[in-house]
Design a protein around this nucleic acid. Structure first.
Lengths: 207, 207
DNA sequence: ATGTGTGAAGAGCTTCACAGCC
DNA sequence: GGCTGTGAAGCTCTTCACACAT
């Protein structure tokens, strides 16, 4: 039962979680893998297998208890307490992330933000005050933050990532359109918006 | 040689493309799969296999001709001419995408943008004038646009996606934190920024 | 009758390792 | 010697199909 868990499984658990919250909101008590599959666009057998990695959450002939499943998933994904995150670069994407609500239930919280633009420093977005990026390393160490978001321009990306590393950050989500090279022990995810668009263009041609 | 091509291969080609442009910029004439692997963080054997799906681009004992490979990849990914894209929702993420440069070489071009905020309508961002979203369907049909980007709030997402579908859009990139349900023949990619952050939090705990 | 949990089969992708060419 | 291109092996994830519980 505690075999290797595919990392796709983890990704899908987030999707299930979203759909389960919706079901909970409309008062659904039980859901079958089949019904969940329609909401999430995932094969029912996969859904059952995904959950079965972590335990026997369902009842045969009935399905899964929505509230109970929500709690189990929360637990698996360790959504509580939320991780504290530092954000560098308050441009458009940075602002979008800072302004995003509903983070409470999502397992993390942006608690500090940095920029090098004096116009921006001191301003407040959703209860986070923008600080001078020169102080970033010090502040991250002070507050013992372990996750960073990189929303700075490409030319600054490597430098800022390096500072995050030096400050003891263990995971970085980057939106810079370039590879961020970090040692093995630091988890890095790069989301390149333009590449995502290009990919989509490619796939839409194929139809 | 023209077997099934893994979709991961396509994703990686975009990564290679980025690195190849860098190599070209610094005047590198040839690159081996090994050197490219260090830039892209991908196993050299995979790189060779990825290219081999499309032809014999390399020279044994030498490597790949950078300029030639760039052209081949451009061709494979059909980056030219760029696809025209319509964007709905000029919030922070919408603005970020509109402001993003370097799209020329990337296979697409945002040619129209829509919002329902009268304050925004008529304003111009990077040569694109924001139009009233009520006119979206008509305008997309007029200009025969086939790709759409959804950067509207969650509550508007389904409605706007539906309008795009009705206007004949074939591919949608959505940043709304919810599943967008579309018929099989419409390609949909959802990027949920908060889920990406949560995933990263999960993986960083595991270290 | 309905729907989970799961071993086994199948599909898809990666890695190995080496022949062949420069 | 150096490096590609590729069959074969290995691995991982998905799908099937059915026993079993309600």
């Amino acid at each position: 039962m505690k075999n290797k868990i595919p990392k796709e499984t983890i990704s899908r658990l987030f999707t299930y979680f979203r759909s389960l919250l919706c079901l909970s909101k409309i008062g659904k008590k039980y859901v079958s893998s089949y019904n969940l599959s329609k909401l999430c666009n995932v094969n029912p057998a996969i859904i059952r297998k995904d959950f079965s990695y972590f335990g026997d959450f369902g009842t045969k002939g009935v399905g899964y208890d929505v509230e109970n499943l929500i709690d189990e998933v929360k637990d698996i994904l360790q959504l509580e307490p939320p991780s504290e995150v530092a954000l560098a670069g308050v441009g458009n994407i940075g602002k979008a992330l800072l302004s995003y609500r509903g983070f409470d239930s999502e397992g993390f919280k942006i608690v500090m933000a940095f920029d090098n633009d004096l116009q921006k420093i001191g301003k407040k977005i959703h209860s986070v005050t923008i600080e001078n990026i020169d102080l970033m390393k010090k502040r991250i160490i002070e507050e013992d933050i372990k996750m960073g978001v990189l929303t700075v321009p490409e030319e600054a990306a490597h430098n800022v990532a390096q500072q995050m590393k030096d400050a003891g950050i263990k995971a970085i989500l980057s939106f810079a359109p370039c590879q961020i090279v970090m040692p093995e022990n630091i988890e890095v995810t790069c989301i390149d918006l333009s590449t995502e668009l290009s990919k989509l263009a490619y796939y839409s041609y194929k139809k």
